[in-house]
Write a protein that binds this DNA or RNA. Structure first.
Lengths: 206, 206
DNA sequence: CTCGCCAAGATTGCATACATTCACGGCGAG
DNA sequence: CTCGCCGTGAATGTATGCAATCTTGGCGAG
């Protein structure tokens, strides 16, 4: 969007998703302005945008904080994803370009070979994003935006048991296979399994 | 949120939804600032928020415009609503307060008695909002926000045939009955019918 | 006559100053 | 000693000025 504001928003988004800025932390405008070397104006714009994405919460005259999701909200987020992402995948499969298929393949492989789980978070986000983008529906992408990069969801990537993690990573591989076969129904089914598997971990942690 | 910015956002939202500001219209900052008697700063903030809600579109250095949805996007919006709103209704039914039930009842009745279709748009929005709110899921409400007040969707309220409109209004009544009976499954089924009925009108118009 | 370039005007983007509101600590009454 | 009020400081909210970018109209080359 606007150069400085866009830059600030991206930086903050990354830091929040990566956990560099912890959940619940206060985001002072002057502090951020100083740290990112811009004035308060683009900072305020970035915060407004992040608030719309559901990453931060703004209270009038009281500043912005990184949202902290309750267990209940996490469960609700998975209910949403279960209703939207399988559909997104089914729509995406026939529309995937060869390049996108290759990238999905690479990501799935990379995730299996990746050692630490921190790296998985970003790879996983990109994997899912490709499907959402390929589905070619802006309303769908908008609806899923706030829900796919919920920080805690990805943070809790770490809570997978070894078996659940193994399942999750191979769901990705199977989805690529289904996509290459051009079988949207197959891919949709795998995505369902993928999300149920993830949800089980989330609720198990409670 | 912030007083002036919030005021500006609400005013613009209403004007866009009501069609006072036509789809595709350009939104100059100075013009709006003068008309709403505030400076450009809260105007910019309001526009940023409306952009996040999907009501306007901002291009860098080129200003804001009211979004105009294609027929394809309208279809996609209904696909989304079909996947989320029936679920929302099912979740909402057990949680509805007596006051909310009465309000739903009043709205459903009012809509049947209302003469002109312009009045229906706002009543309909409130009717659906009550269910979404009562579902008690912020992620769900966020996901549906951008999709329920899509201006064109409500504009096209006018495209109903008399029979389709009659069905639509009585779906509302039936949903209230289902809600009073505490039967979430029933209400969900009616909402499905409601949305299919609406979608049929949309695609028929194309 | 058409296409491309250029300059002037207008508009948005960012920075900064001022106004307003909130949070916190001290003081005094009960 | 506890509770409540008030003042001070800090932070957010708004306004405005300046800089950067885009649009538009006109001019000249082909």
């Amino acid at each position: 969007m606007r150069a400085a504001a866009e830059q600030a928003a991206q930086t903050l988004r990354q830091e929040i998703l990566a956990g560099t800025i912890p959940s619940g932390a206060r985001l002072g405008e002057v502090e951020l302005a100083g740290r990112l070397s811009v004035s308060r104006t683009p900072i305020r714009e970035a915060l407004t945008r992040l608030a719309a994405e559901g990453l931060v919460e703004i209270q009038p005259h009281r500043g912005a904080r990184v949202v902290s999701r309750s267990d209940e909200e996490l469960r609700e987020i998975f209910e949403l994803r279960l209703r939207l992402e399988p559909y997104a995948v089914q729509q995406a499969v026939p529309a995937l370009s060869p390049e996108q298929l290759d990238e999905l393949d690479a990501l799935a492989t990379e995730m299996i070979e990746a050692g630490d789980r921190d790296a998985l978070v970003e790879l996983n986000r990109r994997f899912h994003s490709i499907f959402i983008e390929a589905a070619g529906s802006r309303p769908l992408a908008d609806a899923l935006r706030g829900v796919t990069h919920a920080p805690v969801v990805h943070q809790n990537f770490h809570n997978y048991t070894p078996e659940a993690l193994h399942r999750s990573l191979h769901h990705h591989v199977e989805m690529v296979a289904a996509a290459r076969a051009g079988d949207g129904d197959w891919a949709e089914a795998v995505m369902r399994s993928h999300l149920y598997n993830a949800r089980a971990t989330m609720v198990g942690v409670r």
